[in-house]
């Protein structure tokens, strides 16, 4: 596995008035890894994601993506560079069908103009074929093939979450950020999600995942960063994190030893 740091933060801080939601966090993600971010509620995980994807302006520190300083970039610029995310609260285009949702993710590659569409030129037919075929492939990757023509709002919860990931994949990101993808899922759905994440990872993409489901995290992550009250308290593989006294204290309130 390469040692390239695809994503790196240096002393990243996000303060809301006196509240230090994220405080001088140094972390990095290696290319090809599945990287977990865990921590109790209010640890600053989602805030960190928001800063990484341009939804929040950091108070201090820098963010590097593929060596480029992307601190304060607007969301669409980050996306253009190959960074995409899913949300804790599902943000699908509700009245579009599953396949249409994914096709929006492809919008970069579309070349069709209004005249192409009216006269059904070759460019139009190529675009249609590309987005439909690749869209269906993506849906298959996420085990959503049978739902292609369902309206997003009509799908079961766990399925909507997978669809959100499929849509993010359509923009062909090098780094995918997943914010609590297993939230509200039953064990069967979580197992399916876990398999999906592994497949995406095997396809060569780097994934950062925030999750409360410890079993899922321990199962899929190569490295894990633990945050507590805005501070990074531990980083390492699953074994290291599991036995770190600081982590145990953060979760249980006092030392278990």
């Amino acid at each position: 596995m390469s040692e390239e740091r695809i994503l790196e933060t240096r002393e990243l801080s996000i303060h809301f008035g006196g509240l230090k939601a994220v405080d001088k966090v140094d972390m990095w993600v290696l290319r090809g890894h599945v990287h977990g971010i865990i921590g109790p509620n209010g640890a600053g995980k989602t805030t960190l994601f928001n800063a990484l994807t341009g939804f929040l302006q950091p108070t201090g520190g820098r963010i590097f993506f593929k060596g480029v300083d992307i601190t304060g970039f607007p969301s669409h610029r980050a996306a253009e560079l190959g960074l995409c995310r899913s949300f804790q609260n599902i943000k699908l285009f509700k009245t579009m069908t599953a396949i249409e949702n994914v096709r929006v993710g492809f919008h970069y590659r579309l070349r069709t103009t209004l005249l192409d569409a009216i006269f059904r030129t070759r460019r139009f037919r190529e675009d249609e074929r590309l987005t439909l075929e690749r869209g269906r492939e993506l849906l298959e990757t996420m085990r959503l093939g049978q739902y292609a023509d369902f309206k997003a709002a009509k799908l079961p919860y766990g399925t909507q979450r997978r669809l959100e990931i499929a849509r993010a994949l359509a923009s062909d990101p090098e780094l995918l950020l997943l914010d609590e993808p297993a939230a509200g899922m039953n064990p069967a759905e979580t197992a399916e999600l876990s398999a999906c994440i592994r497949r995406i990872s095997a396809g060569g993409r780097t994934i950062v995942v925030i999750e409360h489901d410890m079993r899922l995290i321990m199962e899929i992550c190569d490295r894990i960063t633990v945050l507590n009250q805005g501070l990074k308290i531990c980083e390492g593989d699953a074994e290291t994190v599991r036995h770190d006294p600081g982590v145990i204290q953060a979760y249980l309130g006092r030392s278990a030893g």
Binding site: T53, F55, P74, S75, H76, A79, E80, C84, R85, F87, K91, L92, F93, K94, T95, M96, V104, G105, H107, Y108, R167, A168, A170, S171
Partner: peptide
């Protein structure tokens, strides 16, 4: 439909 999600997909 959703400005936030659109922005994240690079719109």
């Amino acid at each position: 439909m959703d400005k936030t999600a659109a922005a994240l997909l690079g719109v």
